[in-house]
Simulated assay, not measured.
Amino acid sequence: MDTVSIQNFREVLNDKNTFFLTSHVDPDGDGIGGMIALYHALKALKKDVRMILSGPVGQKYLFLPGANLITTGIPNDLPTDKNTVLLTVDAPNIPRLGFDIESLEALDPYVVNLDHHTSNENFGDLVLMDAKASASCEMVFYLIEKLNLSWTPEMATACYAGILTDTGRFRFSNTRPETFLAASKLLAEGAAHEQIVRLLFEEKSYGRLQLEALVLNSMKKEGPLAWMHCTNSMVERTDCDDTENLVNRLTEIQDVEIAVFLREVKNDLTKVSFRAVNSIDVNQIASKFGGGGHAKASGAKLPYDLETATKKVLQACNDALN
């Protein structure tokens, strides 16, 4: 983030009192962690702050301090003017928030867009953007630092969880020196490293492990392209719908350059996750289907059944490889 953007945000803080924080649909640790860290920071400034999502918080994130304060849906008592700030974290555009667009427009809030995705559409009244940041939570860390706000263990834990999520525990290529500097300071401020690693990356339900087994059994590979899928019947058999980060298992395969995970949602909707291991830009592939993200990690939703979506996605991946 540049100095001008930070100064503009400081002016927003001086001018406005009501903030509601949100993130994209099916938020991960980066979106939720960023919301929570900013919530505590704004509360310390005596602001009226709320956290809202279009859907429920994932079970695995409920241990984060403040996650229990996140509500679902747009509150009925929010002021409908520019004195209310909608601060979006880790969302590339307004539709990705999952709310009814007309309901948001009726609020007519002042919109602050904080994100690190290259696919961000630069929406809002104030854009806080840094495509080089490893995570939105890395941006949140440096924003809080530049504003000279004090850290609490709760803020540090939420922010650290987001950075660990988006860097794959510092394994991904988006990890940079500034990432480690942020992580070091957050640990010094009381981030619960052991708890975060255990609950977000190591501990899994029995159903999740059963689901992984079924999904991995669907795995296929042709040259540098590997893919697998999850059907609704798999979810029903295991009583588990947690497929987060399953696509990363495919990146463990030797000589794979593109990994694809397809999740059947319903007969005419399939969610797709893309991962790149080397130089392929999967953001460009996802954008062909109206999705986006990063060069190394992107996603999209296709209005097709699983079989049709698979054919279209594999063709696009092969085109990119060739």
Results as ranks from 00 to 15, higher is better:
residue 252 E to H: 15
residue 322 N to P: 11
residue 204 K to E: 09
residue 154 E to T: 03
residue 192 A to R: 08
residue 292 G to T: 05
residue 76 N to H: 09
residue 74 I to H: 08
residue 214 L to Y: 06
residue 122 N to V: 12
residue 117 H to V: 09
residue 283 N to M: 11
residue 252 E to W: 14
residue 185 K to Y: 13
residue 250 L to G: 04
residue 42 L to P: 03
residue 179 T to R: 01
residue 16 K to L: 08
residue 166 D to S: 14
residue 125 D to S: 07
residue 146 K to E: 12
residue 154 E to D: 12
residue 83 N to D: 12
residue 33 G to H: 04
residue 4 V to M: 05
residue 168 G to R: 01
residue 95 P to D: 01
residue 206 Y to N: 06
residue 73 G to F: 06
residue 124 G to M: 07
residue 119 S to H: 13
residue 316 A to L: 07
residue 20 F to H: 10
residue 289 F to K: 01
residue 282 V to A: 15
residue 276 A to L: 05
residue 271 K to N: 08
residue 304 Y to I: 01
residue 68 N to G: 09
residue 180 F to T: 05
residue 229 H to E: 13
residue 307 E to W: 03
residue 278 N to Q: 11
residue 145 E to F: 11
residue 23 S to R: 02
residue 227 W to T: 10
residue 182 A to E: 05
residue 291 G to F: 04
residue 158 A to Q: 02
residue 8 N to Y: 01
residue 249 R to M: 10
residue 162 G to N: 04
residue 120 N to Y: 13
residue 194 E to P: 01
residue 54 S to N: 12
residue 192 A to C: 05
residue 106 A to D: 10
residue 299 G to M: 04
residue 146 K to Y: 14
residue 289 F to W: 08
residue 171 R to S: 14
residue 221 K to Q: 15
residue 151 W to T: 02
residue 264 E to G: 03
residue 163 I to M: 13
residue 26 D to F: 14
residue 19 F to A: 14
residue 94 I to D: 04
